[in-house]
Each structure stands twice: as C-alpha cells, then as structure tokens.
Design a protein around this nucleic acid. Structure first.
Lengths: 339, 339
DNA sequence: GGGGGTGCTGAAGGCGCTGTCAAAAACGGT
DNA sequence: ACCGTTTTTGACAGCGCCTTCAGCACCCCC
C-alpha cells in the first residue's frame, strides 16, 4: 500500500536512482527530469521510508533524553530546552524516565533500540560506574547531565551549585546584613544539598560566623514538610538579621507561609530565600529571592553537546558548566535589588 | 564495526536464519543449537539493527506525542502519564511541541518521518480540518487529546470540562451557600473557558441567580495578572457568601494572595476556588478547593487508545471521556469537606 | 525397506533506499 | 563528421534482517 520510490520512478519514467538523487539533492539532475520527478512525488504523496534510509545512512536523527523522573517543573524545563534545541538541529527527541523500574534496567531499555538512536543524554540520580559502563559498552554517543564520574570519558553539562550558593550566602551576609542563617536542605546524601551546605558553612566562616547547633535541617524538598517544620520553629528563628536559606523554592515557600501563618512578617521578622527560581518563587508573597538554575539551558546544552559528538565522535570530551544566577526579590530584606 | 547477525551466525556455526529464529522465538530451535547461538549473542553483545528490523516488520515501536507546548505542569503530567504507559506497552515515546514554528508545520515535522512512528497522539490548541486532513492523509494511526472534530473519524480522549465546572458551582452554591460568584476565566475564545463559563451561568440560573454585569473577567491564566486584578477588585468582591471561581489554580492563587494582601481573610471574607488541582493548589494558603483534572490519566489513555488502534486499525473509533473530580480544601468555606 | 511424518536447519529472495560505476547523451571544438 | 569532455542517467550491489521454501535427518508404521 505505501508508495515506494519505485512507484515514483515509474510514474516519472526515470530510474529509482534518479528519484533518489532529486530527493537527496545530490549531483545535479537535469531540471526537466527533476520537475517530472517532483511532480510525481507530490502526486503520489511519496515519503521515503525512514527504515530503509536509516539502514543505508546509519542514522535516524533521533536522540534520547533519559531523566530520573518526568515529574515537576525542573525536569519539564529540561525537556523543553532539549526538545527545542533538538528540533533546531534537525533531530527528534525521545524522552524516557528512569524512575519506573530500576534505573539501569530502564536505561538499558531506552538504549535497547540503540541502533535507532543517534545518541542519548542521561541524567541519573546515581551515575554508577556500572551505568557508565553500559553506556560506553554500547558505543553510543552520550552526554551526562548534572553529574560526572570521569570527565575524560564523557561530555557533560553541570550546574555550578557551589557558585550559586556562595552568591546567595554572600548576598545574605553582605548585602542584607544577616547575622544568623538557618539552612534547610534536602536529604543529607543529596549531592546538591551537600554542595550548598558546604558553601553555606564556608561563607559563614568567611564572615566570622558559624552555624549554631540547631541551624541546619534536612528535609525532603517538599512544601508540606517545610511548612510543618516552619510552624514549629519560625518563632524561635525570628529576629532582626535572621534568615532561612532553603535548598529549593518549594521549601522556602512553605517556610514563608508558615511564618506568615505564625503572624510574622517576611522579611521584616525573618528573611527566607530559596533555590532554583521555579514558578513558585514568583507565586509566593513576598516573592522569593532565589538562585536561578538555568534548567532549560541545561537541556539545550546537553543536546548541543550530544549533536556535536554525533557529528564528530573523535572530538575531545567537553564539560559545560552552567552558573546559576542570584535573583533578588523581596523575601530577604535586601537593601538594594540587585537584579 | 557493529556486530551483525552474520557475525553471530559464524561464531555459533549456524546460518543466519537460525540466529534470527532464536531471537524471534519462532519455530522451535533445537535447544543445543539455541544455547550455542545465545552464547554467541551474549559474547558479541549483539543487538539486532532496528532499521533492518523495521524495514521488514514495518513497525518501530515508537509512538509520538505532540503537545501545543512543553511548558508547565499540565503538559508535563500528560507526558509523564503517556511515557509510563508507552513503556508498559513496549513502546518508546517521542515528544514534540507544536509551539515552536507554526503549528501545522511542526506537526508535519513530527510526522515527517512518519514511517518511523507507529502512531501519534496530538493535542493542538486548534484542531482545524486542515490538521486533521494532514493526519488522515498520512494514514498514520492517531488519537486526539482534549479536542475532537469529527468523532467518527478518530479516537480521542477528552475531559468533561462541563461536568467539573458544574460540580464546582453546585458545591459553591449548594454546600457553601454562596450567593454571588465572580468568574475569572482565560481568553474568551478559549474552549475550556467557554465550557466552564457556560456551566457557571447554568448553575447560577439553576439557583435562581445570574451573573452581575461585573462578575465575569477574562484574563490569561497567569498568576501575576490575576494578582493584579485581585488587588483592584477584592474589596468590592468581598462579602459573606461571595466567591471567586477562577478557571485555573494559578489565577485562583493570585487572587487569594491579593485578598490576603488587602487584609481580607480567605474564605471568611471571600471564597476563592480554582481548577486543575496542580501543585499550586496545595501551596496556597489556605489550600485551594479546586477541580482535579486527571492530566496524567489523559496521557495514559491517549497512549492506550493509540496502541490499540495500531494493533487493530479497523476497530471502531472510540472516545474516552475523563471526568474531573471536585477536591474540597479550605479556600471556599465549605461546611463539609467532601473529599 | 519404502511411504509419510516430524523436527530442525540452510539457501535465497526480498524490504526500500543509497551509492558506485559505467553507459548514454549532450556539448564543444576542430 | 569525429574525438574528448562534461552532464545526466540507469543498473546493480548491498545495508541487516525476516521469511518462505526446500532439504536433510530421523522416526513410526506397515
């Protein structure tokens, strides 16, 4: 039923080679014959069979994106950026979550039809040697997002977490004159939380301060738990020059709401800042001072790097480091709005 | 370089036919030979070439999902549901936005390599005859999300907007004893807004009421604009038994925040309800009463339907109607928490 | 021991397309 | 009219795999 190149050739009274040539715009084809062929193609609604084509060309122009999860604004922004850039580069994007089923299994699954994918960008919560081995083993071009094991062996796009956290802490201590900062992070094992916590302590030390015994909390990045924690502690946290540095906007928002519920005014009685600059930051009253993590850009760069590697498998591996940017709004009592 | 079926055959000292047979679990292969072949496959890390395979089998096990945009929780949830179900059914999912570039062009783009896709689920903000024509013309199995032109010609998954809006309005007027409801919708041309507005008027009439001259507003579904509108009007809206019915949670949240900023208490001075039940609904103080639109389920069903059609192109077209569900929280002053 | 199975395997013909190569046509100049 | 070039075109060999279709080996039963 599907019309093949032979049908076009017959209708245009030429050989299939000629049809192939006009399609691929190769060696000049006589303009008269070309016209005949193009008419025939249009008339028949002919579309080359991508399988046959891929079989010869050994490329599909499809790249994969594997994320730990497809839930939430963070990942959705990465997908958006990746999708846009892939389109621009003439690729299609296959997305896949590694959350359903165990991670490596699903990674394998995504790659199972590796011959169909020209390359893959992966972001795994746990980039073990094993996962990397799988990738290398399959000899499929790949780039790793937000993590990196052995940078000499693969391209990667990472966020400079530390830079963002340092900027925020300095803003708090220097520009806002904070004198006590409470840190509310994610799980203690979370690498992002670890990096941010280290920056937190370092800047504190820089200013001759240090975290009090009850100044560091580890939650789960959720609004609800932060709200609950806030309800229990905001009164004791409150004070001039006191501030909460939450490791993401959702928790920051929860704490702001808890403070408000407790009758405190943010930022007058307690400053609260977040991280990520998701929609939530602008939908909190007062709007959150936060650190903008360029999520979409991450997707864009991942695809960019991936396509470059596909084009030239021999090029040196590169790492793109994205710097988050401080976004000053109204939740921290900054004297000057920097951005 | 890539290992082919012939390499396996040679190593296992059998013909390629036999290798092919053990891969496809067809006609029984003698267990001794099968073992030899399987060993060879493992040893060589052989993976069948998906192009060659697709060329013969005429299927790729890849389905497409085209959304108007990839931004926001709504779409991301659809992707999530679709992705999960696709995986379960053994398919891979290609996502694509129709927002970059003009719609039909990008739709064509997504389908350009139609021979690579086994089917596609589309959600377009504007399902014109032309778009449908394109789809039908390509003879590619497809299902339409959230819209429907001629139900006899394609499968579809739709949300019963009216049902949700009716439930909400009845809850407001009957359970909460509201006596005046202000409607804040999206653009006047938006079909969802139109359906919800109609339900709004109908229920009002049901209770012997009608919308006042200044009771209906058309915004853009954004938090910011709703907040701004709220700031200007909450005082005049306030009153016992007065309520705002926003067409999505973001706008509802903006209005709640505006009311709070204006010194009003929600729901005491003014009830506010939303639509969609996105994360925002739970992150607003007080948490929003809203209508849960089963977004992920939409994706799940779309893929489900699509795969059924792929399996049996002749089956009658079906439409799945998803009913949104009322979620009562604390922003409307309900006497009883229903859910 | 021959006819008719049954089980398993190999040879060979595509699937639709691209790329090479040589043949055919067209052109230019003598 | 003939030869050397340059265009333009067609024949054909795969790409890697699946799928008849035969063939071979064996076995059962008369």
């Amino acid at each position: 039923m599907p019309v093949s190149i032979a049908d076009v050739a017959k209708l245009a009274r030429v050989s299939i080679s000629t049809v192939s040539r006009v399609i691929n715009r190769r060696n000049v084809v006589n303009s008269a014959t070309r016209a005949r062929v193009e008419t025939a193609i249009k008339k028949l609604g002919y579309q080359p069979n991508a399988f046959a084509r891929g079989l010869m060309l050994r490329k599909s122009e499809i790249v994969g994106l594997v994320l730990p999860d497809l839930h939430g604004e963070f990942y959705s922004e990465i997908i958006r950026g990746a999708s846009t850039r892939a389109r621009e580069l003439g690729y299609n994007l296959v997305v896949s979550s590694s959350r359903d089923g165990d991670e490596s299994h699903s990674l394998l699954y995504a790659i199972r039809q590796r011959s169909l994918l020209d390359g893959v960008a992966v972001m795994v919560s746990e980039l073990t040697d094993r996962v990397q081995e799988v990738l290398v083993d399959f000899r499929l071009p790949f780039v790793v997002l937000d993590r990196e094991i052995d940078s000499t062996r693969h391209d990667s796009v990472v966020i400079d977490q530390r830079h963002g956290a340092l900027a925020m802490m300095r803003h708090l201590l220097h520009d806002c004159g904070a004198r006590r900062v409470i840190f509310v992070g994610g799980l203690e094992t979370n690498v992002d939380t670890i990096a941010r916590l280290a920056a937190y302590r370092d800047v504190l030390a820089e200013f001759g301060l240090h975290a009090g015994p009850n100044d560091v909390y580890h939650l789960d990045y959720q609004y609800e738990t932060a709200y609950a924690l806030g309800l229990r502690h905001v009164r004791e946290w409150a004070g001039a020059g006191h501030c909460v540095f939450a490791a993401n906007d959702e928790m920051a928002s929860g704490i702001v709401d808890a403070a408000t519920a407790a009758g405190l005014a943010v930022p007058r009685d307690l400053g609260v800042v977040g991280f990520d600059d998701t929609r939530v930051a602008r939908m909190t009253r007062p709007p959150l001072t936060t650190v903008r993590v360029p999520m979409a850009l991450m997707g864009v760069n991942a695809i960019e790097l991936l396509c470059q590697r596909i084009a030239d498998p021999q090029r040196a591996t590169t790492r793109i480091t994205l710097r988050p940017e401080l976004v000053v709004r109204e939740s921290c009592g900054s004297r000057a709005r920097i951005s």
